[in-house]
């Protein structure tokens, strides 16, 4: 499913100025322990987390993660957004919790048949 459609449907706020139309998502992973994400997240996933420090960028790079959703209203600093933009990584924020966000995303992807 196209990322711009997902983001629109679930009302996520995009923080990085990058184009979403080319990004296809078929699964996601939620986790705040970086080693767990490195071990278990499927490459190319969308990642739901409440971590907002720069190290999430290294994890995203290693796992070819194409989008990070900061749940619970988490807002990162400008430096993170700037670096993420340079690396073409979509970073969103949402007021909803990681639980709600995961549930909604799961339902949406399921409906889409992925």
């Amino acid at each position: 499913m196209k990322l711009d459609i997902i983001a629109n449907e679930l009302n996520w706020k995009l923080l990085t100025k990058i184009s979403l139309t080319k990004i296809d998502i078929d699964t996601g992973y939620s986790g705040d322990l970086l080693s767990d994400v490195l071990a278990n997240c499927e490459p190319g996933s969308l990642w739901i987390t409440i971590q907002k420090h720069k190290n999430i960028l290294g994890v995203a790079a290693a796992k070819d993660i194409s989008a990070v959703i900061l749940a619970g209203g988490i807002i990162p600093d400008d430096a993170l957004i700037e670096t993420a933009e340079k690396r073409d990584l979509a970073v969103f924020t949402t007021e909803e919790t990681a639980f709600i966000t995961s549930g909604k995303l799961y339902r949406l992807l399921k409906k889409d048949g992925v």
Partner: peptide
């Protein structure tokens, strides 16, 4: 608090 300390780093390196 920064998301480290799962005790999975060395196992990930091995893996």
């Amino acid at each position: 608090q920064m998301g480290f300390g799962a005790g999975m780093g060395l196992p990930n390196m091995k893996q």
